[in-house]
Design a protein around this nucleic acid. Structure first.
Lengths: 110, 110
DNA sequence: AATGATGCCTTGCCATCTTAGGCATCATTC
DNA sequence: GAATGATGCCTAAGATGGCAAGGCATCATT
Protein backbone atom coordinates (compact mmCIF):
# COMPACT_ATOMS: atom_id res chain seq x y z
CA UNK A 1 0.00 0.00 0.00
CA UNK A 2 1.63 3.21 1.14
CA UNK A 3 5.30 2.53 0.67
CA UNK A 4 5.95 5.81 -1.13
CA UNK A 5 8.07 8.16 0.96
CA UNK A 6 6.77 11.64 1.48
CA UNK A 7 9.08 14.57 0.89
CA UNK A 8 9.48 17.21 3.51
CA UNK A 9 8.27 20.65 2.59
CA UNK A 10 10.41 23.40 3.96
CA UNK A 11 8.69 24.69 7.05
CA UNK A 12 6.81 21.58 8.09
CA UNK A 13 9.60 19.94 10.05
CA UNK A 14 9.09 22.07 13.15
CA UNK A 15 5.48 21.03 13.30
CA UNK A 16 6.37 17.36 13.02
CA UNK A 17 8.95 17.63 15.79
CA UNK A 18 6.60 19.49 18.10
CA UNK A 19 3.87 16.99 17.35
CA UNK A 20 6.18 14.09 18.14
CA UNK A 21 7.18 15.70 21.41
CA UNK A 22 3.56 16.27 22.32
CA UNK A 23 3.47 12.55 23.06
CA UNK A 24 6.17 13.01 25.69
CA UNK A 25 9.84 13.95 26.11
CA UNK A 26 12.36 12.23 23.91
CA UNK A 27 15.90 12.51 22.65
CA UNK A 28 16.84 13.51 19.11
CA UNK A 29 17.50 10.11 17.68
CA UNK A 30 14.26 8.86 19.15
CA UNK A 31 12.32 11.74 17.64
CA UNK A 32 13.30 10.56 14.18
CA UNK A 33 12.04 7.09 14.97
CA UNK A 34 8.87 8.36 16.56
CA UNK A 35 8.06 10.48 13.53
CA UNK A 36 8.65 7.50 11.31
CA UNK A 37 6.35 5.36 13.39
CA UNK A 38 3.65 8.01 13.71
CA UNK A 39 3.66 8.47 9.95
CA UNK A 40 3.40 4.74 9.21
CA UNK A 41 7.00 4.70 7.95
CA UNK A 42 6.16 7.31 5.34
CA UNK A 43 8.33 10.08 6.69
CA UNK A 44 12.04 9.70 7.21
CA UNK A 45 13.63 12.77 8.77
CA UNK A 46 17.35 13.21 8.16
CA UNK A 47 19.70 13.89 11.03
CA UNK A 48 21.16 16.81 9.13
CA UNK A 49 17.74 18.41 9.21
CA UNK A 50 16.76 17.35 12.70
CA UNK A 51 19.60 18.57 14.86
CA UNK A 52 19.72 22.10 13.47
CA UNK A 53 15.95 22.22 13.80
CA UNK A 54 16.12 21.14 17.43
CA UNK A 55 18.68 23.80 18.14
CA UNK A 56 16.50 26.35 16.39
CA UNK A 57 13.31 25.57 18.22
CA UNK A 58 15.07 25.43 21.55
CA UNK A 59 16.34 28.96 20.93
CA UNK A 60 12.73 29.92 20.37
CA UNK A 61 11.79 28.30 23.66
CA UNK A 62 9.40 25.86 22.11
CA UNK A 63 11.30 23.01 23.73
CA UNK A 64 13.81 22.66 26.51
CA UNK A 65 16.53 20.07 26.74
CA UNK A 66 18.31 18.14 29.45
CA UNK A 67 20.99 15.52 29.29
CA UNK A 68 19.95 12.16 30.62
CA UNK A 69 20.10 8.47 29.84
CA UNK A 70 17.86 6.27 27.80
CA UNK A 71 16.44 3.01 29.09
CA UNK A 72 19.64 1.13 28.28
CA UNK A 73 21.75 3.68 30.14
CA UNK A 74 23.15 5.51 27.15
CA UNK A 75 23.74 9.22 27.34
CA UNK A 76 21.22 11.26 25.36
CA UNK A 77 19.77 14.74 25.29
CA UNK A 78 16.07 14.77 26.08
CA UNK A 79 13.76 17.41 24.68
CA UNK A 80 10.52 18.48 26.33
CA UNK A 81 7.73 20.55 24.83
CA UNK A 82 7.18 23.85 26.65
CA UNK A 83 3.91 25.72 27.09
CA UNK A 84 5.05 28.08 24.36
CA UNK A 85 5.80 25.07 22.23
CA UNK A 86 2.30 23.73 22.68
CA UNK A 87 0.89 27.04 21.58
CA UNK A 88 3.25 27.11 18.63
CA UNK A 89 2.18 23.64 17.62
CA UNK A 90 -1.46 24.73 17.59
CA UNK A 91 -0.55 27.70 15.42
CA UNK A 92 1.43 25.63 12.99
CA UNK A 93 -1.40 23.16 12.68
CA UNK A 94 -3.83 25.99 12.03
CA UNK A 95 -1.44 27.41 9.46
CA UNK A 96 -1.18 24.01 7.82
CA UNK A 97 -4.96 23.73 7.73
CA UNK A 98 -5.24 27.07 5.99
CA UNK A 99 -2.78 26.05 3.33
CA UNK A 100 -4.45 22.67 2.93
CA UNK A 101 -7.73 24.49 2.47
CA UNK A 102 -6.19 26.68 -0.22
CA UNK A 103 -4.91 23.65 -2.06
CA UNK A 104 -8.29 21.98 -1.79
CA UNK A 105 -10.06 25.04 -3.13
CA UNK A 106 -7.59 25.37 -5.97
CA UNK A 107 -8.38 21.85 -6.99
CA UNK A 108 -12.11 22.43 -7.05
CA UNK A 109 -11.81 25.76 -8.80
CA UNK A 110 -12.74 26.22 -12.43
CA UNK B 1 -15.52 33.71 7.32
CA UNK B 2 -12.06 32.77 6.10
CA UNK B 3 -10.28 36.07 5.93
CA UNK B 4 -7.04 34.67 7.33
CA UNK B 5 -4.36 34.64 4.68
CA UNK B 6 -2.54 31.40 4.14
CA UNK B 7 1.23 31.40 4.10
CA UNK B 8 3.04 29.76 1.28
CA UNK B 9 5.23 26.80 2.09
CA UNK B 10 8.41 26.69 0.09
CA UNK B 11 7.82 24.31 -2.77
CA UNK B 12 4.08 24.75 -3.17
CA UNK B 13 4.13 27.81 -5.39
CA UNK B 14 5.02 25.87 -8.52
CA UNK B 15 2.03 23.63 -8.00
CA UNK B 16 -0.30 26.59 -7.60
CA UNK B 17 1.00 28.25 -10.74
CA UNK B 18 0.71 25.09 -12.78
CA UNK B 19 -2.76 24.52 -11.41
CA UNK B 20 -3.80 28.05 -12.32
CA UNK B 21 -2.46 27.58 -15.84
CA UNK B 22 -4.32 24.29 -16.18
CA UNK B 23 -7.42 26.45 -16.61
CA UNK B 24 -5.88 28.08 -19.66
CA UNK B 25 -3.02 30.36 -20.76
CA UNK B 26 -2.55 33.57 -18.86
CA UNK B 27 -0.01 36.31 -18.22
CA UNK B 28 1.90 36.72 -14.98
CA UNK B 29 -0.16 39.43 -13.41
CA UNK B 30 -3.31 37.52 -14.22
CA UNK B 31 -1.93 34.36 -12.64
CA UNK B 32 -1.72 36.14 -9.31
CA UNK B 33 -5.34 37.19 -9.61
CA UNK B 34 -6.49 33.79 -10.76
CA UNK B 35 -4.80 32.11 -7.81
CA UNK B 36 -6.44 34.57 -5.49
CA UNK B 37 -9.82 33.89 -7.00
CA UNK B 38 -9.38 30.13 -7.08
CA UNK B 39 -8.41 30.16 -3.43
CA UNK B 40 -11.37 32.30 -2.36
CA UNK B 41 -9.08 35.27 -1.68
CA UNK B 42 -7.09 33.23 0.81
CA UNK B 43 -3.84 33.14 -1.12
CA UNK B 44 -2.03 36.27 -2.21
CA UNK B 45 1.09 35.49 -4.23
CA UNK B 46 3.72 38.21 -4.26
CA UNK B 47 5.23 39.42 -7.52
CA UNK B 48 8.68 38.92 -6.05
CA UNK B 49 7.86 35.26 -5.73
CA UNK B 50 5.92 34.84 -8.94
CA UNK B 51 8.21 36.16 -11.63
CA UNK B 52 11.29 34.23 -10.53
CA UNK B 53 9.09 31.15 -10.27
CA UNK B 54 7.75 31.64 -13.78
CA UNK B 55 11.28 31.98 -15.11
CA UNK B 56 12.26 28.85 -13.23
CA UNK B 57 9.46 26.66 -14.46
CA UNK B 58 9.87 27.88 -18.00
CA UNK B 59 13.51 26.77 -17.89
CA UNK B 60 12.21 23.38 -16.80
CA UNK B 61 9.84 23.38 -19.78
CA UNK B 62 6.74 23.10 -17.68
CA UNK B 63 5.36 26.20 -19.34
CA UNK B 64 6.12 28.15 -22.48
CA UNK B 65 5.64 31.85 -22.94
CA UNK B 66 4.72 34.19 -25.75
CA UNK B 67 4.27 37.93 -25.86
CA UNK B 68 0.81 39.04 -26.73
CA UNK B 69 -1.88 41.45 -25.69
CA UNK B 70 -4.62 41.24 -23.13
CA UNK B 71 -8.25 42.01 -23.91
CA UNK B 72 -7.68 45.74 -23.47
CA UNK B 73 -4.76 45.70 -25.86
CA UNK B 74 -1.97 45.92 -23.34
CA UNK B 75 1.27 44.09 -23.91
CA UNK B 76 1.69 41.04 -21.69
CA UNK B 77 3.58 37.77 -21.65
CA UNK B 78 1.31 34.77 -21.80
CA UNK B 79 2.24 31.45 -20.27
CA UNK B 80 0.90 28.13 -21.45
CA UNK B 81 1.12 24.79 -19.68
CA UNK B 82 3.11 22.20 -21.63
CA UNK B 83 2.58 18.45 -21.69
CA UNK B 84 5.55 18.12 -19.37
CA UNK B 85 3.96 20.71 -17.15
CA UNK B 86 0.75 18.74 -16.92
CA UNK B 87 2.70 15.70 -15.89
CA UNK B 88 4.63 17.74 -13.35
CA UNK B 89 1.41 19.10 -11.93
CA UNK B 90 0.12 15.58 -11.41
CA UNK B 91 3.34 14.64 -9.65
CA UNK B 92 3.27 17.66 -7.40
CA UNK B 93 -0.31 16.96 -6.48
CA UNK B 94 0.57 13.37 -5.66
CA UNK B 95 3.51 14.57 -3.63
CA UNK B 96 1.28 16.99 -1.79
CA UNK B 97 -1.19 14.21 -1.08
CA UNK B 98 1.54 12.07 0.44
CA UNK B 99 2.63 14.85 2.74
CA UNK B 100 -0.96 15.62 3.67
CA UNK B 101 -1.40 11.96 4.51
CA UNK B 102 1.67 12.06 6.73
CA UNK B 103 0.36 15.08 8.58
CA UNK B 104 -3.01 13.41 9.01
CA UNK B 105 -1.41 10.25 10.35
CA UNK B 106 0.78 12.22 12.71
CA UNK B 107 -2.30 13.84 14.14
CA UNK B 108 -4.05 10.55 14.78
CA UNK B 109 -0.95 8.90 16.17
CA UNK B 110 -0.54 8.19 19.85
C1' DA C 1 -1.45 66.60 -12.39
C1' DA C 2 -1.72 62.94 -9.34
C1' DT C 3 -3.04 58.47 -8.13
C1' DG C 4 -3.87 53.66 -8.56
C1' DA C 5 -4.18 49.65 -11.29
C1' DT C 6 -1.98 46.91 -14.60
C1' DG C 7 2.09 44.81 -16.40
C1' DC C 8 7.13 43.47 -16.47
C1' DC C 9 11.44 42.77 -13.98
C1' DT C 10 15.79 42.42 -10.55
C1' DT C 11 18.46 42.29 -6.33
C1' DG C 12 19.66 41.03 -1.79
C1' DC C 13 18.29 38.78 2.21
C1' DC C 14 17.20 34.89 4.83
C1' DA C 15 15.43 30.46 6.41
C1' DT C 16 15.92 25.81 5.95
C1' DC C 17 16.59 21.17 3.71
C1' DT C 18 20.14 17.91 1.66
C1' DT C 19 24.36 15.72 1.36
C1' DA C 20 28.20 14.37 3.40
C1' DG C 21 30.99 14.07 6.51
C1' DG C 22 33.08 13.37 11.84
C1' DC C 23 33.03 11.20 16.43
C1' DA C 24 31.85 8.01 20.45
C1' DT C 25 29.63 3.94 22.59
C1' DC C 26 27.73 -0.58 22.64
C1' DA C 27 26.02 -5.23 21.06
C1' DT C 28 26.38 -8.63 17.80
C1' DT C 29 28.71 -11.40 14.65
C1' DC C 30 32.64 -13.57 12.44
C1' DG D 1 39.60 -10.10 19.14
C1' DA D 2 37.96 -7.50 15.10
C1' DA D 3 34.57 -5.83 12.29
C1' DT D 4 30.01 -4.23 11.63
C1' DG D 5 25.79 -1.89 12.45
C1' DA D 6 22.84 0.55 15.47
C1' DT D 7 22.53 4.23 18.55
C1' DG D 8 23.58 8.84 19.78
C1' DC D 9 25.55 13.62 19.13
C1' DC D 10 27.12 17.23 15.96
C1' DT D 11 28.86 20.41 11.83
C1' DA D 12 29.75 22.51 7.18
C1' DA D 13 28.82 23.50 2.38
C1' DG D 14 25.63 23.98 -1.05
C1' DA D 15 21.24 24.77 -3.18
C1' DT D 16 16.55 26.12 -3.16
C1' DG D 17 13.13 29.27 -3.11
C1' DG D 18 10.04 32.84 -0.85
C1' DC D 19 10.01 37.85 0.66
C1' DA D 20 10.71 42.75 0.77
C1' DA D 21 11.80 46.40 -1.72
C1' DG D 22 12.88 48.50 -5.19
C1' DG D 23 12.66 50.08 -10.59
C1' DC D 24 10.13 51.02 -14.90
C1' DA D 25 6.18 51.85 -18.29
C1' DT D 26 1.31 52.44 -19.66
C1' DC D 27 -3.37 53.68 -18.99
C1' DA D 28 -7.76 55.29 -16.73
C1' DT D 29 -9.70 57.96 -13.35
C1' DT D 30 -9.91 61.80 -10.44
Amino acid sequence: MTDAKADLLQGTLDMLILKALSLGPLHGYGIIQRIRRMSDEMMQVEQGALYPALYRIEQRKWVKSKWGHNETGRRAKFYTLTKTGEKQLKEEEASWDRLALVVAKMREAT
